[in-house]
Design a protein around this nucleic acid. Sequence first.
DNA 1: TCACAAACAATCACAAATGATCATTATGGA
DNA 2: TCCATAATGATCATTTGTGATTGTTTGTGA
Lengths: 266, 266
Amino acid sequence: MHEKERNRIILSAVQDRPVVTVLDLCSMTGASEATIRRDISALHEAKKLRRVRGGVEALHPNQLPGLAGRPFAVNEAINIAQKQAIARRAVELCDEGEPIIINGGTTTFQMVHPLATRRCQVFTNSFPIAEHLLKNSKNTVLMSGGVIYREQNIVLSPFDNDVTRNFYARRMFMGAQGVGPLGVMEADPLIIQAEQKLIGQADEVVLLVDSGKFEERSSLVLCPLKDIDVLITDDGISDRSAAMVESADIKLIVVPVGASKEEAVS
Amino acid sequence: MHEKERNRIILSAVQDRPVVTVLDLCSMTGASEATIRRDISALHEAKKLRRVRGGVEALHPNQLPGLAGRPFAVNEAINIAQKQAIARRAVELCDEGEPIIINGGTTTFQMVHPLATRRCQVFTNSFPIAEHLLKNSKNTVLMSGGVIYREQNIVLSPFDNDVTRNFYARRMFMGAQGVGPLGVMEADPLIIQAEQKLIGQADEVVLLVDSGKFEERSSLVLCPLKDIDVLITDDGISDRSAAMVESADIKLIVVPVGASKEEAVS
DNA sequence: TCACAAACAATCACAAATGATCATTATGGA
DNA sequence: TCCATAATGATCATTTGTGATTGTTTGTGA
């Protein structure tokens, strides 16, 4: 086995586990301890990994600074005022005790705060939403089952025949990456899969998007506009976008940002 | 066990409870007090946690103050050393990358700490277990879907045709309220439902019970002893109980509490 | 305040990991 | 074919981490 091969094995192994011992690497490569140590020294010098007593560890202290890896956090901060206002208006649509579905997303996540005082039946595929509602509210919480994807913060089952199919709600709330004449757009295929599972499980589909989303374009169309019944956005929406929404026979709710109670319904 | 692994376990444990004692960490890692203290000193210097007399506490006073209502917490404290030792032994049964099922419960919950250094595929019906593994490990986490019951801290679907039926694991780990000649006993009908769904989804069923559980009696029999393949308990088990277990053709693993490495297999 | 127990710090012995040295084995070119 | 060089493996001395022991401090309850 050549040096290059060993190095690839070592670098590969160190990605998988927090620490890999020299002996582990010996049995993986068939080389002796001395050789492995020399390789490690070289890779350490080349800053490809970090040597620690007992073995090696990945140089990039791969995630695990505590919380679930989140591009969530980065999205969470932007347009936070709009998102909160929109989310609050969305919760106002719900009656007490009503069954609702909340899709994962940073805008929909903001619904948890106004929901804290409610007692609805909430079905969600978002782990953070379920967690927050569990800990801070008395709502009944239901979750879909499946793999929990850290990056997207959602739970997605590879199978179709799960709880999701048996929960039927008054309303379903979802966010999106962008909205255009072609329909509702999302960037992540996983999120699309998750949301498509839930569309159709409610009488009314409510889309929560801040006004900036009307300018965004994304590669994948989640669903056409006709699938949406209600759209809640902030007062930054252009007349052109508003016209587009209304022409698609969607009930448009515009929330004034900063203020809260007033609304404009068309 | 290497320093990095211990550190991860320590950091994982300190997320779980406000304060963790040195002895707790010993039973979780199998290391001596001296080593744990040294690790704590290092982590303290690195500002990863705060050392207090008697143990350590999280640096970031753990998220929510109010927190999930947990009757969990009351059970959690009792026989903690035994539970930790048993849970650690249970994790040792698992190979890296293996699919496993972990049922909800206070004993099985302790498996999350040794699992912090692993990368298994973990399927669970326990919200706290899923949450902890998500936030403190790189394991792939799968959850069953359904209603999240606050009191029991488990997720239970009223339907049979969910993800659960499609996940097949090498081992399934479960706790119990009591063990007797009649079988494994549980008090809560919900927990029984949840566990029965999962028995049969694994090659091997492993029961984790501290030795006190052999004296307990409970109203409901979850399953007969013959359904159990392996039973892990602590060295407080009586000869009579041990004989009962062995006569049921169960592989008995007795974990010495306080000590660490040795074991007795029959 | 005192006494007692638990937690902690310091020290030492031991074992594991490591680095250095030297012998052996491949590799490539004349 | 032979030599030169580099890579590898083995051996031994050294360093470092670990665990046990002992002594000291701190906290607690009488």
